[in-house]
Design a binder for these strands. Structure first.
Length: 574
RNA sequence: CGGGGUGUAGCGCAGCCUGGUUAGCGCACCAGUUUUGGGAACUGGGGGUCGUUGGUUCAAAUCCAAUCACCCCGACCA
């Protein structure tokens, strides 16, 4: 490829709305353009990177028996209604009507569609196991798209789905996919970590699931990592322990106390001279259960925080969020003095964190302006409640085995789940087993965000001069930079080397523009091609050209004729 | 969804407060000359319904209103 024919614009300046390095560089180097909030156009260079990434994915999935299919991007509402997700996924799913007034959506994920495909073909256990995958565009109407391709609304995803006759078979495929994912990310040049995760809206709670994370400060997920145990988990589900609480063991009766305008845990703690960890923080959450509005009262230690993702998991209520003033009013609650005492558990479920000792006394609001109680004891005073891990982990916590932990941030580039029979059951996709009995196959589901993975590569490998592509993803392996554009000897040498590379099957681009040397250097660095060949002064003087590695900056000089063998050697592991 | 901010050339911005020539700067783009080892210099040029709509005014990029778009922050007082 000749640079002059590439139809690419690079920029010296960073677009004002790009927050993170990968977004800035992908834009500056001419790989992506924004077309709207969370919507991006890909340039020819970006398409080459995407092709390289998807080839790696296809190869590795084929190795473990994956079969590529393509499901329609718009899906009819009927399918989603069969699994009840038409309403459950809420505003995340962009829904619309066609000219005949039929409801459709742009697929945010494809469990229903793939099960529909599956059930039209599968009749017998003899057809299993099977693993179907596709690489196509998904649309999720995210609350807040950001960070360029990291959280776009329209994005390319590889999603795979496997079907099994029994748990054992599912486990085996899950393991195969786990290994395939590790190889895929390794080949993309990513340092990746498998992390225990929460299935969220996609799977039944308790299902086995791992996320693959690239550690980066710009990551949107918080991870809890224990190096000693080689254990890592998403903070949405990581259970850890506090070791600093002294409980107020007491059998004294509950005592009503006047607290006036004191509302925060901090104020109450000071006023009554009680430790914050001996107060109970109570929040009211609102969500949906079986399409009906449902309320949840969540309690934790006063200086802890409620983790909403964990609350959703343990309560079975989806789309949980903090209730607003009008919700509080409607239910007869008062802001600032919330508490579980005397709450009708038929109306509001009560979920209490495990760190709240059920025999210790706590200070808590009593839903009456100006009053709290002392010595509220869970076992005695709150007859109907559930206890579960619903707090946010802190860096000062220890693992369940008592070892030190670290909190760090990660970019989720892949996610694998065991879905169980949730979708096959919902969509009545059964096959006959050996005994001629109909059974619902177990499913696994495996996703990779293609654009996000590519962004993560940029995020992880870029330096102050621009992108540094690994050979496996780079649009071109070699960039030839003939300096002094008007010098015939140099131009000829460049052209000759360019043709020679092509003859030898080396992927190459030549910067044939009539621009100053600095421009060519800066652009080559910015665009991140791994191998640079510079033809300039040294060629005029000594008939030598110069090699420079983008990644290490290491330079070498060799005679022109020696370059092809050198490059072949350098690229042979690719 | 709530709060804040920004919309002026492809990109980055000034001008607006205090209304008044032909709306400006840098980068990018086009032509020419000179340059050529880390984003060259000079000369000449093209490109704008100042987000949109409405209002105030002799006069609006500038003041007012509405609206749209984009960005950032936010659920910890429950």
């Amino acid at each position: 490829m000749k640079y002059s024919q590439l139809f690419i614009q690079t920029f010296k300046e960073t677009p004002s709305d790009a927050q993170i390095i990968s977004h800035q560089l992908l834009h500056r180097a001419g790989f992506i353009q924004k077309s709207g909030a969370g919507l991006y156009n890909y340039s020819p260079l970006m398409m080459m990177v995407i092709q390289n990434a998807t080839s790696i994915i296809r190869e590795e999935l084929s190795k473990v028996g994956g079969l590529e299919i393509s499901l329609s991007m718009a899906t009819p509402s009927e399918l989603w209604k069969e699994s009840n997700r038409w309403d459950e996924l809420g505003a995340l799913m962009i829904q619309f009507k066609d000219r005949s007034n039929r409801d459709l959506c742009l697929s945010p994920t494809n469990e229903e569609a793939v099960v529909d495909y599956f059930r039209k073909v599968a009749k017998s256990y003899k057809q299993l196991p099977v693993c179907l995958f596709q690489i196509n565009t998904k649309f999720r109407d995210e609350i807040r798209p950001r960070f360029g391709l990291m959280r776009a609304r329209e994005f390319s995803m590889k999603d795979a789905y496997s079907f099994h006759i029994d748990r054992d078979c599912l486990d085996k495929t899950y393991e195969l996919l786990y290994q395939a994912y590790s190889r895929i990310f390794e080949r993309m040049g990513l340092a990746c970590m498998a992390v225990e995760a929460d299935g969220g809206a996609m799977a039944d709670s308790g299902a086995k699931t791992h996320e693959f994370h690239v550690l980066a400060d710009s990551g949107e997920d918080e991870l809890v990592v224990c190096k000693q145990e080689a254990w890592a988990a998403n903070s949405e589900m990581a259970q850890t322990k506090r070791v600093d609480i002294v409980y107020n063991k007491s059998t004294d009766a509950m005592e009503l106390i006047e607290t006036g305008q004191h509302h925060t845990i901090q104020d109450i703690s000071k006023l009554l001279n009680v430790k914050e960890s001996n107060c109970l923080k109570t929040v009211l959450l609102k969500g949906k259960k079986e399409n009906e509005t449902s309320y949840l009262m969540a309690c934790c230690i006063g200086d802890d925080e409620i983790n909403i993702a964990k609350c959703m998991k343990h309560s079975g209520i989806s789309q949980l969020e903090f209730a607003d003033e009008s919700d509080l009013k409607e239910l007869g609650f008062v802001r600032g003095v919330l508490g579980p005492v005397g709450v009708d558990s038929d109306q509001v479920n009560i979920l209490v964190d495990l760190h709240v000792d059920n025999e210790a006394g706590f200070v808590v609001g009593v839903n009456k302006e100006g009053f709290h109680v002392k010595n509220m004891i869970l076992n005695r005073d709150i007859p109907v409640c559930t206890q579960a891990d619903i707090r946010v982990s802190r860096a000062t916590d220890v693992s369940m085995n008592g070892n030190d932990i670290e909190l760090c941030r990660g970019i989720e580039v892949g996610h694998i789940f065991q879905l169980g029979d949730k979708y096959t059951k919902a969509l009545k996709a059964s096959v006959l087993d050996k005994n001629g009995k109909a059974i619902f196959p177990l499913m696994g589901c495996y996703g990779i965000g293609v654009g996000r993975a590519v962004s993560a590569v940029v995020e992880q490998l870029a330096d102050e001069n621009g992108i540094v592509w690994p050979e496996s993803l780079s649009p071109f392996q070699v960039v030839i930079l003939p300096l002094k554009s008007k010098d015939d000897d140099i131009a000829k040498a460049g052209q000759a080397l360019y043709e020679e590379c092509q003859k030898n099957g080396i992927s190459v681009i030549i910067d044939d523009r009539m621009v100053s040397p600095g421009f060519k250097f800066k652009d080559a660095d910015l665009m991140g091609f791994p191998h640079q060949i510079i033809i300039g002064e040294t060629f005029k003087n000594k008939e030598e050209v110069e090699y420079r590695s983008r990644q290490s900056g290491k330079k070498e000089s060799l005679r022109l004729a020696e370059w092809i063998p050198f490059l072949k050697e350098a690229l042979k592991d690719k």
